[in-house]
């Protein structure tokens, strides 16, 4: 069974890079463009892991993570955050919101896949 990854990012560029990287690594990839869409898609796609951006319109990454953690089904799903630089404060907020780990953009495909492997069985 392929592992299913939900990616949430408002940038078309990043979405496409995630898609290519994850598909090449053998994951099934579902994509959402912002936090609101991410929460909508979540129920239908039942992912194994979530990768989300922080800065997004409508609902940002922090709000999205909190939303996921409030969901009974996904309280324990691994969530990886994409951050542009290793900004300690942002990482901290993401953790408080319930993020499992983080990936620093521009991400290196190996690191992304490693991070996902690290948080999924």
């Amino acid at each position: 069974m392929k592992k299913k990854v939900l990616t949430v990012d408002d940038s078309r560029t990043i979405r496409n890079m995630l898609l290519v990287t994850l598909n090449n690594a053998g994951f099934e990839t579902i994509q959402a463009e912002d936090g609101v869409e991410g929460l909508e898609v979540l129920e239908e796609c039942n992912p194994d892991v979530i990768v989300t951006d922080i800065n997004m319109p409508r609902l940002d990454g922090f709000g999205f993570i909190e939303g996921v953690r409030r969901n009974e089904k996904y309280r324990a799903i691994p969530i990886l955050v994409l951050t542009t630089e290793s900004d300690a404060e942002k990482k901290n907020r993401a953790r408080q919101a319930g993020a499992t780990g983080w990936i620093v953009k521009p991400f290196d495909p190996t690191k992304l896949v490693d991070a996902i492997e690290r948080v999924t069985a």
Binding site: S11, T13, I14, M17, N55, P57, T84, K105, F107
Partner: peptide
């Protein structure tokens, strides 16, 4: 605040993508 956020996001997004292409 959403206007400021949108402005910030625009620059942030460009930076993020530009980083990926060095």
């Amino acid at each position: 605040p959403e206007t400021v956020n949108a402005v910030f996001r625009a620059v942030h997004s460009i930076k993020g993508g530009a980083g990926a292409f060095a």
